Simulated scan of single mutants.
Amino acid sequence: MITGLLGVAGVLVLIEAIYMYVCHETFAFGKGNMMAWVHQHLVDHLEWDGEGTLLDIGCGAAALTVRCAKAFPNSQITAMDYWGVEWNYAKEQCEKNARLERVENRITFQKGDAAKLEFEDGTFDAAVSNFVFHEVRTAKDKRKVVKEALRVVKKGGVFSFQDMFSQKALYGDMEEFVRELKAEGISDIHYIGNLEKKLDFIPGFVTMPWMISGMGIIYGRK
């Protein structure tokens, strides 16, 4: 009996390991490239001429930062992240990646907390963020992280944020939140929820609750 249970447990562990490996390869740049398509979806919803300054909130290893630098060659970009030992990337890695892509002269990297950005109100012409807000541990209310990101965008500036916006446990009623942001002065804002069910490049097997279930985007003009 015990041997049989151990055998079943071993098979389940193996299945999980295979599943996680396949998901990793699907997301990975230069392999399945799904995250590259996710980044492009975000950039496609940033209605900006690229003249001025852009903030990438939670830049990670700078993949989205570099994509923005190439998409908007006249822009100056500030990219920030909390980084830390629990992540497999750091500021030095970001700087190296920017040099490799020959965009280092237009990007500044700095450490920071997305819940309390060290910038004045209305500093940037544009802001982006991808799958970051729900990870911000210094803010229990993730809506406040969104508002903090919008705070540093200039009036008339643009934004495009992707996160688990359709997960009610994180953001509540998003339609209500959008109305709230409009009432607080955001002139043009759009929300598209459950993107994992709408984007052709996202395979069904990565849409489990522990992966990217509830993906959404909010974008517009302040």
Rank of each mutant, 00 (worst) to 15 (best):
G4P: 01
M208N: 00
F119P: 06
E176V: 02
K222T: 04
G112W: 04
D163A: 09
G157A: 05
A114E: 03
E104R: 14
F131C: 11
Y19P: 02
G84F: 11
C23M: 11
G52S: 11
D56F: 08
A115Y: 13
D56A: 12
I15Q: 12
A69V: 04
V132A: 14
A61S: 12
L100H: 15
S213T: 04
G157P: 00
F177G: 00
Q40C: 01
Q162E: 15
H134W: 04
I57E: 00
D200R: 06
K140C: 02
D113Y: 12
G156W: 07
M215R: 13
L12A: 15
R137S: 13
Q167R: 15
D56N: 10
E180S: 13
V206N: 01
V153D: 01
I218H: 08
F201V: 12
F124H: 06
I57A: 09
V136K: 06
V22D: 01
A71T: 14
A127E: 03
A183K: 15
A98W: 10
C23G: 02
D49T: 07
Y171N: 04
V146P: 01
G7C: 10
G60K: 02
S166N: 08
T78Y: 11
F27L: 12
H24A: 11
R179T: 10
G220Q: 08
A149P: 05
R102K: 15
Q162P: 01
Q93M: 15
V132I: 05
N194K: 07
T138K: 12
C94R: 09
A98R: 06
L46K: 03
V13H: 12
H39W: 06
L42G: 09
E16T: 09
D163Q: 04
S75N: 05
G32Q: 07
K198L: 13
I18Q: 08
A114G: 10
M211P: 00
G172T: 03
M215V: 04
A17G: 11
Q40F: 07
L170T: 03
I218P: 05
H41A: 06
F177H: 06
D125A: 05
E176T: 09
Y21T: 14
H39Q: 14
E51K: 15
E184D: 14
Y89M: 06
Y82G: 11
H190V: 12
G60Q: 03
G214H: 01
G50P: 03
L150R: 03
G112L: 05
F161E: 09
T207Q: 08
S160E: 08
K142A: 02
R106D: 08
G122V: 04
G50N: 09
G157D: 03
T123G: 05
M35F: 10
D125Q: 13
G193I: 11
P203E: 02
F133Q: 08
F72V: 07
G204E: 06
A149V: 09
I18V: 15
V136D: 06
R151H: 11
L54D: 02
V85E: 15
H134Y: 01
A169F: 09
W87D: 06
F133R: 06
V145G: 06
G7I: 10
Q167E: 14
R99G: 09
N88L: 10
A17R: 13
V22C: 03
P203H: 00
A127G: 10
G214R: 06
K198I: 08
A90L: 01
